[in-house]
Design a binder for these strands. Structure first.
Length: 622
RNA sequence: UGCCGGAUGGUGUAACGGUAGCACAGCAGUCUCUGGAACUGUUUGUCUAGGUUCGAAUCCUAGUCCGGCAGCCA
């Protein structure tokens, strides 16, 4: 138990192994001896970036492998050349590797670069198998340019798939149909009305074989013929009404190249790809539930020599305040509403990563929301919680001021300089301390001073006292304003005995605020991200989701940071005390620092404040 | 209304005929050199109606409501 707990996505967030109906099925299959090892797969279509919904699926499939000592294949479900691009394959590889890093690498399988399924024969039955590459170094898993490995590709199975189709024709279970798309729709009938047999349904086997070969040879234009399964046009299940197995598409394929002009449909390719890879449990989303009889039909009618995979459906993630629909996501990116697929406001995995969300937090989230067949809206506060919980324990604290207001400590000499010890992480004693320079002139947060304070405001106010974190208690003596009446400087006196260890160190003052020394602080651009949408279900039916964009989803400020932050590393995450968690952005350079806000700290003051202040704070956090 | 699926607090999930539990959110409090964290307490729930049973969220019957399915998309 101790060793396996290291592999648990949620670690401290709950019991070592989650329980749900899918894990129950897997456990039962292992217990009954139906399978000795379980094999799952994550099968994205390379036509867009992975998002938080895929993260749920990845965590489920890889989690099953991790928990049961099985493996999980990354497979490109690439059977439609007109919609897919190799560029997406690269982002998918990177995102998956990032998500499973330090967790499921030993169970993550890719295949040997360029390998194709092995043709085998058992009892005169053609069979094909595609196994994983052995002992892949973890670094290769996320490397799209690896010369050793690559993802599994459904398009690598086109040849076996063709052979299986021929076999179906030979068994009299598939036929070539000349119906146009429109006619086919008419013949299909409706959910409550049976369809009619295609006039081409009773073609002879030799004729079907000949026609199918000529389809492959490119003799017919797009859309003129299809290969269809011969099942039952009167079936109450639409997907059993002689579904299309192959269509003609004179188009090159991003992975298979220009060899093909007929391409298998999802229903034909998916079950057989699962079979070829030896998948035991093929987990997909609810909308494929009605396809399951077809999934089983194809496999069962091919008379295959090895155990068949089992399809199991679960409800996909619908996160509140986010859009996850591929079409809408593309629209936001193309219209420049956001700044690319990895914009930190997007629920894409690359966006979340750039925002500073740790993979571990995403896994904990996926784990916490559970797996069911009930289609539900998941409160994104659950994700927020997972992020804060992770970062609270792991992120070092720093002092940073977002909107600086100058403070002069009048009872200190001009050249006063001292270094103060600051705790790096109160949640982690091992993290140690650092020193921060303190001087006569400081910046504090504009929000931490109110000339006319609201009730229960316990930060700085005229004549009032506040503690400067790690430093002195100061009193505000004078408020300096510019011509327009804006507060531009505060003149304060410090209680010089109030520093930690001093005579008056234990004096109680209501508030403690953060600060930086004007002289020693470094400037930085800080991007304050917030929810992209203002309503819980922007992805709902009504198409006009852009009406609900949050105009304040990105605010850029010029802040000042304590000097130690100048040496920040791109993957470091920090808590800027009292503000939130921040990560260095990839746009950052040593002399032009850029930080992204991952998430704010919980802010109970925003709620207490009420009135104008509270309303503004609430709005900012929507 | 053809087929398939689903319904447990505000939200999400557990319970596998035997005390309806957990998490998030909320509320109240303790503590605090982060209005953070931590800790304590707490409000709110089995879709409806019958039935079986000593006992039903769970089994049966009948309803109600919700979701999915009619691409040569996946």
């Amino acid at each position: 138990m101790t060793t396996s707990s290291n592999n648990t996505p949620a670690e401290a967030a709950g019991p070592a192994t989650p329980s749900d109906f899918i894990r129950d099925i897997v456990a039962a299959d292992l217990a009954s001896g139906k399978h000795r090892q379980i094999v799952t797969r994550f099968p994205p279509e390379p036509n867009g970036f992975l998002h938080i919904g895929h993260a749920k699926s990845i965590c489920l499939n890889f989690g099953l492998a991790v928990e049961n000592g099985g493996r999980c294949n990354l497979r490109m479900d690439d059977t439609n050349p007109t919609k897919e691009e190799a560029a997406y394959v690269e982002s998918i590889m990177r995102d998956v590797a990032w998500l499973v890093a330090d967790w499921a690498e030993p169970n993550y399988s890719l295949k040997t670069k360029g390998a194709l399924p092995q043709a085998q024969e058992q009892d005169g039955k053609p069979d094909y198998f595609m196994g994983p590459a052995e002992a892949v170094p973890a670094a290769e898993l996320g490397n799209p340019r690896s010369t050793l490995v690559e993802p599994f590709y459904a398009s690598d199975y086109f040849e076996p798939l063709y052979a299986f189709a021929v076999r179906l024709i030979e068994a009299g279970k598939a036929f070539v149909c000349d119906l146009s798309a429109e006619d086919m729709e008419t013949y299909r009938g409706a959910p409550d009305r049976p369809g009619q047999d295609s006039p081409f349904r009773e073609r002879s086997i030799p004729e079907n074989l000949d026609l199918f070969a000529r389809m492959r040879a490119g003799e017919f234009p797009n859309g003129t013929r299809t290969l269809r399964a011969k099942i039952d046009m009167a079936s109450p299940n639409i997907w059993l009404r002689d579904p299309v197995l192959y269509r003609i598409r004179h188009a090159a394929h991003h992975h298979a190249g220009g060899d093909w002009c007929i391409y298998p449909m999802y229903d034909f390719a998916h079950c057989l790809s699962d079979y070829i890879e030896g998948i035991t449990h093929s987990i997909c989303t609810l909308e494929f539930e009605v396809h399951r009889p077809l999934y089983d039909w194809i496999l069962e009618n091919l008379d295959l020599p090895r155990p068949l995979p089992r399809q199991i459906e679960f409800a996909k993630l619908i996160p509140s305040y986010m859009i996850v629909s591929k079409r809408k996501l593309i629209q936001l990116v193309q219209d420049g509403v956001v700044d690319g697929w990895d914009d930190p406001r997007l629920p894409t995995i690359s966006g979340l990563r750039r925002r500073g969300v740790p993979a571990r937090a995403l896994r904990a989230f996926a784990y916490n929301i559970g797996v069911t067949k009930y289609k539900s809206l998941t409160d994104i506060a659950v994700l927020d919680f997972a992020i804060r919980e992770d970062l609270n324990r792991s992120a070092q604290r720093r002092l940073a001021v977002l909107r600086p207001l100058k403070v002069v400590i009048t009872n200190l000499p001009e050249d006063h300089a001292e270094d103060l010890a600051a705790v790096n992480n109160p949640e982690d004693p091992e993290a140690g301390t650092r020193s921060i320079p303190f001087s006569r002139e400081l910046f504090i947060e504009q929000e931490d001073f109110r000339e006319v304070p609201p009730p229960k405001y316990f930060r700085l106010k005229p004549g009032g006292e506040v503690r400067l974190k790690y430093a002195y208690i100061i009193r505000c003596d004078e408020v300096v304003k510019d011509a327009e009446g804006n507060v531009v400087e505060l003149r304060c006196t410090a209680d010089l005995e109030s520093k930690r260890g001093g005579a008056t160190a234990d004096r109680k003052v209501k508030g403690t605020i953060h600060w930086v020394s004007t002289r020693n602080s470094v400037p930085a651009i800080i991007r304050l991200y917030d929810r992209l949408f203002t309503i819980p279900e922007p992805d709902g039916e009504d198409g006009d989701f852009r009406r609900h964009l949050n105009p304040g989803s990105l605010e850029v400020v010029s802040g000042r940071l304590e000097p130690s932050l100048a040496g920040a590393h791109p993957t470091d995450r920090f808590q800027f005390e009292r503000l939130g968690y921040f990560v260095l952005d990839e746009d950052s350079t040593p002399d032009h620092l850029v930080f992204n806000r991952t998430i704010t700290l919980r802010d109970s003051w925003a709620k207490v404040a009420g009135g104008a202040d509270g309303a503004r704070a609430q709005l900012k956090r929507i």
